[in-house]
Amino acid sequence: MKKKSRGFIAVDILLIIMMILPLLVSITVKVLTTPKSEGINVTGARILTPVYDKLPPPFDLYITEANLNTWMVMISITALCLFLTHGLKTKAETKRQHAAEWIVEKCEKLVSDGMGDYFSGFAPFIAAIIALSAFSSLQSLLGLYPPTSDLNIVGGWAVLVFILITYYKCKCGPLNYLKSFTEPVALLTPMNMISEIATPISMAFRHYGNVLSGTVIATLVAAGLQGLSSIIFGALPGVLGEIPFLQFGIPAILSIYFDIFSGCLQAYIFAMLSMMYISSGFPLEEYEKRKQKKKEKQNQKIKQKSAKKKFSEVN
């Protein structure tokens, strides 16, 4: 095996720094902005700076902890992808290329199994959703505010998926899309409209509620253990009495379920559901029929044109 050149190693180190630095930035911001004497805080993301706060609540803009953490995670993931695909060769030699190929293959298999061959171009989008969601939820392992426990962030993703669903439903013409509301009976139109709107809401609430419940329970358990240990060990002299002994280790058992398992599961479920909704809303048979009709028309036109040409040439 060839020895790596110096430039290659330098780029590697730069990318690794780019992976770790954003997390350090968000940890520093968290440490700097957290007030010292704070009890249980489950109120939501902390506001860092207002961008535009002259209008009443729904129209004002703030940069919150959740925004910052999302952007930092996005930078980290980008650096990770660049790191994995750095120095690709036609035949995989390095471990990182094997890892990158494994990820790409798994994602393509997941998408082609779940959505069919027509949507095979969706693999990068689904992979991006899974990576962003999973890494955002896993941020809580570092003690950061997980952006997925903010409804605004997850709601944004759900709206994006909703736009995609509607786009693929409109592929056979907007009239066909409007007609699909009156099926099976025209009486059910309001019900169909409600269920259409309920899709993004339920997707956003499912993801956000799962992560938020984990955060709330972990915070409550940590606070409760602190109180309990101050009751039990409070009689110890000096500094020993102030150390919350029960807080060591016990919250970690909860975080295995709530942070790691639940976070990754919710990322998978969000991706699966968006795949399912997008591919099931798309009327594939109707679309192919229309395509064939168009092709036939075009062929007929070409035939007519060539016939005319021949006719004029003959004349």
């Binding site: 799962n210 419940s213 998978y268």
Partner: peptide, 24 residues
């Protein structure tokens, strides 16, 4: 099964969101 569980969980999560709103 995990997919089905996640969908079945939705109503419970609606209740959770309402409870959190009511408390905080």
């Amino acid at each position: 099964m995990l997919m089905g569980c996640a969908i079945a969980e939705t109503t419970g999560l609606y209740a959770l969101v309402i409870a959190i709103l009511l408390i905080f």
